[in-house]
Design a protein around this nucleic acid. Sequence first.
DNA 1: TCCAGCACGTA
DNA 2: CGTACGTGCTGGAT
Length: 902
Amino acid sequence: MGDRFAGVTDTSRPRLLLIDGHSMAYRAFFALPVDKFSTTSGQHTNAVHGFISMLATLLRVEEPTHVAVAFDAGSTTFRTEALPSYKGTRDATPEPFKGQVPLIKEVLEAMHVPHLEKDNFEADDILATLSSQADALGMEVLVCSGDRDSLQFVNENVTVLYPVKGVSELARMTPEAVRTKYGVEPHQYPELAALVGETSDNLPGVPGVGPKTAAKWINQFGSLEQILDRSDEIKGKAGESLREHLDVVRLNRQLNHLLTDVELPFGPDDLKVQPWDREAMSTVFDALQFRTLRERLFAMHPAADDDENVGPSVDVTLEDLAPGLLEAWFAEHDQRPLGLDVAGRPVPAGGDAWALAVADGPASAVALDLTDLSDDDDRALGDWLSDPTRPKVVHGGKSVWHELASRGYSLEGVVFDTELAAYLCFPDQRSYDLGDLAERHLHRELTPLDTSNGDQGALDLAVGEDSEGGRLAVRAAALTDLAEVLRGELGDRSAESLLTDLELPLSAVLVHMERHGIAMDVDYLRELEQHFGELVAGAAGAAYEVIGREVNLGSPKQLQEVLFEQLEMPKTKKIKTGYTTDAAALADLFVKTEHPFLKFLLEHRDSTRLRQTVEGLLKSVADDGRIHTTFQQTIAATGRLSSTEPNLQNIPIRTEAGRRIRRAFVVGDGYETLLTADYSQIEMRIMAHLSGDEGLIEAFRTGEDLHNYVGSRVFQVETSAVTPAMRSKIKAMSYGLAYGLSSFGLSNQLNIDVKEASKLMEDYFTRFGGVRTYLAGVVDEARANGYTATIMGRRRYLPDLTSDNRQRREMAERMALNAPIQGSAADIIKVAMLGVEKEIAVRGLKSRLLLQVHDELILEVGHGELEELTALVREQMGSAADLRVPLDVSVGTGSSWHDAGH
DNA sequence: TCCAGCACGTA
DNA sequence: CGTACGTGCTGGAT
């Protein structure tokens, strides 16, 4: 009866990762600041951290099947016997580095990564031996080493990863890369090094001979041997110098030759990547006080990896169900949550669904053609779907809902959503494709569905290999297993409640909002399109006249030509492709030159933009005269929603012309009015709450204008004496602080000296010291924990906080400053949305939520419900969180979004 | 046809 | 050298 679906096994070649332990640890030591990586007992850990972090990245990015780390053993080798001063410069091992190598070995043991060392040999010899053995076995080899001698064994199968900067940036030294950089073949590198010398090994070369000369000689004579034999043919000073140092070169060559026949306890085959001993790792990491790194590693390799039972393939038993038997199948299988997957088009109002699969794990699954279902089965399916007591696991429930709605089904009883769960666990990913998740967490490969079209009626739902029904069933079967793994991941992060009590119920609210959409005044929108179109044409014509030719005003490239070549204006800020032509720069140029072209260009930009927005909206109006946006619930790493197709969260408001667009969003037939409700200064309130700064808290309790109040404290004047200029500086700074603004950035934005900006920030922090303490604390805590958290415990992992790349680290620091604030605001409005929706339902009101714009809700008000709804919305939004400051909500109403705004 | 880069709208 | 997003255009690569 059942049919087997074989998983796809990895057919790629085995890949061996070899690491030079000592050289990479040494690099890590110098890449990371010692003072930021020490345990409370005084043990330095920067080299350990950097090394393990690098190893983790390599394991993730390169996905080796085999791995080993080699260390130097003892201080004497056959090389020091030949030349006692060999590596003499390394005698002065820095004090804080000592003792870190044994710690690295401890971690490696816990990770079940073999490490090798052998008396009298260097790590390089071990690597060379393993590398040549693996190469002979047909393996792909990656050698991570900071020792250039290793370049000699690079070939088509062997790549050296050589640290460029710190240990986070590795250059892939392929044969091609070696040739490009050194001008010789990889196997000739030691000949070149013998001539040039190697300072890090304390090997002097031929004075006056650098890499360029050495490469030239090697290419000219073919080999080092020839160069030495025929050294008398080389003219000039360099030749003379060479002849005086023949012995040095010979010795160098003897020393930098790596052995490939060291006897080792393991061969490449014995180095298979093993599951980690997570308990042992926890113990070592606890001792080292590496909370971040532990989280990062465990997040990267979920617990499922340890489960030997999860193989690379899974067999799903797809039942060949005769018509009319669906009800019986459900009766037999819905004791526990069933996986549900649908093939369709998840468009709000206007979607479609053509096939569906339900699975009780891999044991039993059914696939259904929704276009051709018997009446009995249709009823059985509808009953099961709409029954809240029969639990389901879905992936992206919001989409599933839209798909099913197109065929008149409703969906209730979703107890787990793998997409939402994955988002809560790994919020920085950009997508949560079910196939990717199954691969990562279940080690199971899913064949993607054919999303091109439904080709209704011609569905291949036969029970057979590789049918669409089979693929759907495999996906549905993966859901319940994936849910179990992700439930564990959620537990590790204390995020179960965020899923169950926040995101999951919220997705139902979003479904309703998307389905309702917002009514548009299409005739008015067309007038606007016409109007803005005329403005565009006028501005373009005027601009062309000024410069005497027609260019594409929408092309930054052509504009640069006009501005900086034809009109010879002063250069603006540099960008990748030349000089910026953004609005700020153009405005700046206009102040300097007063050239009328700039004025027309800016007008053209504005009008084009507005016309574009209007056109986009017109195209999005559905048959019901409304726009149904899609709210993305798993995109923003901070926890915010986003809006697409179209984006209704960036409708203009700042300029009068822009606001006219908001008049096109209107109350729909059968409703009384639109209502907007927004939180005022919610982010600053959260800042006040989180920082506990008494001054800032007081500012909100007095009920005075926030920026005036803060301005009066910073500038030490009466509140009434705060000028608009002062107020706007304060406003920019207050918000800037929540984004990790620097004094440089502030000065840039306010067009003031860096000195003045620094002074401003200093004065601010003098009056609001709690804010400074908080901001510094956030970053420190995030560095220690590995993540930031919102007031509801939503985490954002920021591994780059310990990066040795300054740019990345500082970027992560700014994210760490912003994430708790932006994310807490997102949490709060989500809670408010649940409250509003629930209260509307409880009271049986007709009013409904339509849109959310981060700190604002837009509702459509049923007739006679305005007063009750206003109070309800105020109450729910105001009580969505219990902060040390009140949550202020302002409400407006009107027949358009513009009129309802404030 | 796809992609990077630029520009710009919102909170 | 201020966070979080989505969209549309250009121009070069494919």
